[in-house]
Amino acid sequence: MIRHLVLFKLNEGVSKDEPRVAAGARGFAELGAKVPGVLSWETGWNLTDRPVAYDFAINSSVADQAALTAYLEHPEHQAAVAPWQEFATWVVADYEI
């Protein structure tokens, strides 16, 4: 099984209360149920205010590398990621569990 962990940092001057950011978060909250092969799906806003903290997280799992590739290439995933390119940067870790 593979854990797919993504941490998002909003760009300078961008607030999570902006309509485009709120819509992006909703899009990710709904994404796990839309893509076949996703075994677990959690999203949420960071609760701490530390300088090293990221703002938003996705914590999900898939069965194997083929399922991860299918998820990443899925049109629903591509549509959910696209708006975030305008207002955030992110880091990803994919590891076996």
Score class of each variant (00 low, 15 high):
residue 66 A to K: 14
residue 77 H to R: 09
residue 70 A to G: 11
residue 30 E to C: 09
residue 39 L to K: 05
residue 20 R to G: 01
residue 36 P to S: 09
residue 43 T to K: 01
residue 21 V to F: 00
residue 65 Q to C: 09
residue 35 V to A: 05
residue 17 D to N: 13
residue 28 F to D: 03
residue 57 A to I: 03
residue 9 K to A: 04
residue 76 E to Q: 10
residue 36 P to H: 08
residue 97 I to C: 11
residue 36 P to E: 06
residue 95 Y to S: 05
residue 25 A to E: 11
residue 35 V to S: 03
residue 87 F to T: 00
residue 75 P to K: 15
residue 77 H to T: 06
residue 27 G to R: 02
residue 63 A to K: 13
residue 56 F to R: 06
residue 70 A to F: 07
residue 10 L to D: 01
residue 48 T to P: 04
residue 37 G to T: 00
residue 55 D to L: 08
residue 1 M to A: 12
residue 88 A to S: 15
residue 26 R to L: 11
residue 33 A to K: 15
residue 37 G to F: 03
residue 65 Q to I: 13
residue 95 Y to F: 15
residue 69 T to Q: 15
residue 40 S to L: 00
residue 43 T to F: 01
residue 88 A to G: 08
residue 4 H to F: 06
residue 22 A to L: 11
residue 61 S to H: 00
residue 56 F to W: 12
residue 32 G to H: 10
residue 64 D to K: 13
residue 67 A to E: 00
residue 42 E to I: 01
residue 39 L to F: 00
residue 95 Y to I: 07
residue 32 G to M: 12
residue 64 D to Y: 13
residue 52 V to N: 13
residue 57 A to Q: 03
residue 36 P to L: 05
residue 35 V to Y: 03
residue 46 N to V: 09
residue 27 G to H: 04
residue 35 V to F: 05
residue 52 V to C: 12
residue 54 Y to V: 05
residue 83 P to S: 11
residue 3 R to A: 11
residue 2 I to P: 01
residue 49 D to F: 10
residue 80 A to Y: 02
residue 67 A to G: 04
residue 78 Q to F: 09
residue 86 E to N: 13
residue 69 T to R: 14
residue 92 V to I: 14
residue 67 A to K: 02
residue 34 K to L: 15
residue 24 G to R: 02
residue 46 N to P: 05
residue 49 D to E: 15
residue 2 I to F: 11
residue 52 V to P: 03
residue 92 V to S: 12
residue 97 I to Y: 12
residue 75 P to S: 15
residue 91 V to R: 07
residue 60 S to A: 14
residue 48 T to D: 14
residue 50 R to M: 11
residue 30 E to P: 07
residue 29 A to M: 07
residue 13 G to L: 00
residue 65 Q to R: 14
residue 35 V to T: 08
residue 75 P to R: 13
residue 37 G to P: 04
residue 88 A to P: 03
residue 47 L to P: 07
residue 7 L to Q: 07
residue 30 E to F: 11
residue 3 R to L: 11
residue 6 V to M: 08
residue 97 I to V: 13
residue 79 A to I: 08
residue 84 W to C: 01
residue 79 A to R: 15
residue 96 E to H: 07
